[in-house]
Amino acid sequence: MDIGSGAVTVMTADDCWARLTATSLGRIAVSAAGQIDIFPVNYVVDEHHTLLFRTAPGTKLLELAINDRVAFEVDDHDADAAWSIVVKGRAERVEKQGEIDRAEQLGLAPWIPTLKYRWVRIHADEITGRQFDRQPEPERF
């Protein structure tokens, strides 16, 4: 698909998962009681193509308890291209000790010095991504 003079490429699901695996910072969008919130989280992808992040008690966990439907977005760029991936699905607290132990082995650590003992897993119902070739803006006038 071409838009203007720059190319937009729709990414395959495999390409999206490969990019998600290679990065670690995203944003989770949650909605409860008519309010929408977006939070930055560092995350990891496990072998089952689910996203995992750690959190402390607070707004994210409360809103996820009310409504487990989420959107998760990751994007990045370099000198030649930019890309954006959106995962839509449902989030659940990881509560079984065996699953927590496996999650702990993935090496995810908070970016800030806070204790985050709660694990959340996002199951993807839909994953979409696009890559954008970075080129100069076309002549506008």
Rank of each mutant, 00 (worst) to 15 (best):
residue 39 F to Y: 14
residue 113 P to G: 00
residue 106 L to K: 11
residue 67 N to A: 12
residue 37 D to C: 03
residue 82 A to N: 08
residue 22 A to L: 07
residue 139 E to S: 13
residue 72 F to I: 13
residue 4 G to N: 09
residue 98 G to T: 13
residue 13 A to Q: 11
residue 115 L to V: 04
residue 34 G to I: 11
residue 1 M to Q: 05
residue 26 G to H: 03
residue 44 V to H: 02
residue 84 S to F: 12
residue 111 W to C: 00
residue 14 D to T: 12
residue 39 F to G: 01
residue 13 A to T: 12
residue 99 E to S: 12
residue 15 D to S: 12
residue 119 W to K: 08
residue 8 V to H: 01
residue 66 I to E: 14
residue 44 V to S: 03
residue 50 T to W: 08
residue 26 G to S: 08
residue 7 A to M: 12
residue 45 V to W: 01
residue 7 A to K: 14
residue 37 D to Y: 10
residue 117 Y to M: 07
residue 135 Q to R: 15
residue 44 V to T: 10
residue 61 L to M: 09
residue 24 S to H: 12
residue 62 L to S: 08
residue 12 T to D: 05
residue 108 L to P: 06
residue 133 D to G: 09
residue 60 K to Y: 02
residue 129 G to W: 08
residue 38 I to G: 06
residue 24 S to P: 00
residue 90 R to M: 12
residue 35 Q to M: 13
residue 35 Q to C: 07
residue 38 I to A: 15
residue 109 A to L: 11
residue 23 T to V: 10
residue 8 V to Q: 02
residue 67 N to E: 13
residue 75 D to E: 13
residue 130 R to M: 12
residue 20 L to W: 01
residue 125 D to M: 12
residue 36 I to Q: 05
residue 46 D to K: 06
residue 63 E to L: 09
residue 107 G to V: 07
residue 46 D to A: 05
residue 120 V to K: 02
residue 75 D to T: 06
residue 41 V to C: 06
residue 115 L to M: 02
residue 6 G to A: 14
residue 98 G to W: 12
residue 65 A to H: 11
residue 139 E to L: 15
residue 41 V to H: 00
residue 15 D to C: 07
residue 11 M to F: 05
residue 98 G to N: 14
residue 19 R to P: 07
residue 16 C to D: 01
residue 119 W to Q: 07
residue 120 V to Q: 02
residue 52 L to Y: 10
residue 37 D to M: 03
residue 111 W to M: 03
residue 32 A to M: 08
residue 136 P to L: 15
residue 130 R to K: 15
residue 113 P to W: 03
